[in-house]
């Protein structure tokens, strides 16, 4: 949580000011925005952290911002805070992946707990994403024939004998053996079993 930031979006100036001050006092790094638009304009998706989002705002409200972010594949976890506190809205927010939905005024420890959860979730997601892109990068090193062989093995984990692969792809078993060795070398893995595991990460 060292470099994670709390991004706060609320149109009420009082709330924005007091909430960011209190969180800073508790040691959080806080960036506050007065509207969904100003947040979208300034936020860099590489910045880790979470979003504390007011539900009721003019123009783009909290739920709308959430759906905009989902569409833009910005996976920053969201903690909703609301002065309206309607059950339907909270259900919708949770369904769309929110960490929690807090009604104003809320207990500070609840918010802090939510922020912690959100940070953890963010870090986890970023790690997964980087592993995935790493595996993806290694996979991209393969030649097109090697990719063909690798994909066949990923799809048919029980039929990894060279003869069967050769018959299916219309190449000799020897060539298959050759390709298999190159694949394991390029993907930096030791066995075909690891290849299958990798495949889950590359193609979830």
């Amino acid at each position: 949580m060292t470099n994670s930031t709390v991004f706060l979006v609320d149109d009420e100036a009082e709330v924005r000011m007091t909430l960011s001050r209190a969180l800073r006092k508790r040691g959080f790094t806080v960036e506050a925005f007065d509207s969904a638009n100003s947040f979208l304009n300034q936020y860099n998706p590489d910045q880790p952290g979470c979003l504390v989002l007011d539900y009721g705002m003019p123009e783009i409200d909290g739920l709308e911002l959430q759906s905009l972010m989902n569409k833009a594949k910005i996976s920053l976890p969201i903690v909703f805070i609301s002065g309206h506190g309607g059950v339907p809205e909270s259900v919708q927010a949770m369904k769309a992946g929110a960490v929690d939905f807090l009604e104003k005024p809320f207990r500070q420890y609840e918010l802090v707990a939510c922020i912690q959860t959100a940070f953890e979730r963010d870090i986890e997601m970023r790690q997964k994403a980087s592993e995935q892109s790493d595996a993806q990068a290694r996979f991209e090193r393969l030649t097109s024939r090697e990719k063909e062989v690798a994909i066949f093995m990923m799809k048919h984990p029980s039929n990894t004998a060279s003869k069967e692969i050769g018959r299916a792809l219309d190449i000799s078993p020897r060539t298959v053996d050759h390709h298999r060795a190159r694949i394991l070398e390029k993907l930096e893995i030791g066995s075909v079993i690891e290849l299958v595991e990798l495949s889950h990460r590359v193609m979830p």
Partner: peptide, 28 residues
């Protein structure tokens, strides 16, 4: 009523946040 509730929830939130900041400050 709901308007009043909404309007009141804002200063109440601000108060709780200020209390939290005050406690932190006092501890510091």
């Amino acid at each position: 009523a709901s308007g009043l509730a909404h309007e009141l929830s804002q200063p109440l939130t601000a108060i709780t946040q200020n209390v939290d900041a005050a406690i932190s400050t006092a501890k510091e």
